[in-house]
Design a protein around this nucleic acid. Sequence first.
DNA 1: AAGTGGTCTAGACCACGTT
DNA 2: ACGTGGTCTAGACCACTTT
Lengths: 259, 259
Amino acid sequence: MPLPAQGRNSRRPALTSPTRRQSQHARIRAIVKDRILSGAWPPGFQLPFETDLAADFGVSRMTMNKVLTELSRAGLLVRRRKLGTVVAAPRVQAAVMEITDIEAEVRGLGLPYDFSLLTRALRPLTPEEAAAARPGPDDPADALALIGLHWAAGAPFCLEQRLINPAAAPLALTQTFGPENPGAWLLREVPWTTALHRIRAINAGADLARLLQIAPGEACLEIRRRTESSGRWVTLVHQTYPGTQHQLVARFSPTGDHA
Amino acid sequence: MPLPAQGRNSRRPALTSPTRRQSQHARIRAIVKDRILSGAWPPGFQLPFETDLAADFGVSRMTMNKVLTELSRAGLLVRRRKLGTVVAAPRVQAAVMEITDIEAEVRGLGLPYDFSLLTRALRPLTPEEAAAARPGPDDPADALALIGLHWAAGAPFCLEQRLINPAAAPLALTQTFGPENPGAWLLREVPWTTALHRIRAINAGADLARLLQIAPGEACLEIRRRTESSGRWVTLVHQTYPGTQHQLVARFSPTGDHA
DNA sequence: AAGTGGTCTAGACCACGTT
DNA sequence: ACGTGGTCTAGACCACTTT
């Protein structure tokens, strides 16, 4: 006997406070999203079945399906029939600007890759660095400062100066950053980050030219990136690519181009 | 009397050919999307109401709503209660890299803007240009070639070398490109484009240094962009920004960050 | 006041992929 | 074969916005 429609709120009493402004799927989506972004549900985590989740949240399966479908479209979840729903592995920088995984970039060129760490220190942020990192009140004053070189086929490929927030990645303090470069390690350790890039052309100074084995004054591409996760700054990177060799490639479409 | 569910295909007989692989909303979404991207439904066009569209396509309102909601999320449509659904004005380069509208960029800095056209010609593509443009078989051999300068507060801001496909924008041949720069004009004329960017650092040569009023050898940021719409190449641009002054800003998040 | 999109549901069938 | 997500519907109430 199909009840003749008693309205969407039949089982949910009106909330006392007027906080109730968002829809069910918006509320549930925010909850699930937060569990993923916060790491409570790490990549690979298997979610309860759609039916169970719907029951847990007290909504119909259609509503729950809407949430999961949207998060799947957004790339946070991977859904496969019979297998169920799992948290996705973070895409490398939305596949739109592949400057995060330099090792993959170099190997994609068919070249052998290496990374060497030049310096490593735990030190306070300079005022300039603090202005760029914008640390929160409970972030420590000291940061792990690394300088390293990415190599491609024995030639310097990219100079990297990096600061890491120990509060965001405590294990970084005991990490050697040997064969695995800091960027790749961080991507595993703190997935689901947001990044702000600033890209400039600069003339190589004496020090930079020596490190990159190029002539002083040669044009270099400099990328500064601030990365945060759940509002907390994770890392601050300066990457400098020598000369005219390197180019960034980015594709954009107005649609988001899912199909 | 609510019929006890007769299945989704009750009114649609199975197609004879096994072409039927996609869902209803996927099929309808593709149709609507194509009407927008092809220009049949230009920006500002008012769509029929959700109910009518559902009837037209022979689906329930929920299914039609799903399509329209998705396209609205993707930024192709704008929906407002009571007003209806209209085709959105194309966002400036997905708001992710604001290098399309240089005028807006300059004015955003609080500076007066000007554009001056240096040369203009209708000529065949060079082999290099053709390789970059990848013209189709029915594209004309000749392209409109423009060179111009963007000015900010009386100083050169960006050198622009542009090729325009007359087949994609016929009105370009009679356009003066006076106060309005070619990029802004094209965005109006051919909305909904896809662009591939390549970004490099180069040392300014003698000619470039003279035009941009900088010292020879100074590092410049060069952006090459190929734009296409519905598979056809629309324009090919080289933009060169002088020195260390200019920086590109781009924000990325793995989620798409709709909220 | 009226009209349009926004949301929600219960139930049903379908299809894919593992078993 | 079975289980899970994928899709679809008819009907209903809600809420925003313009008239």
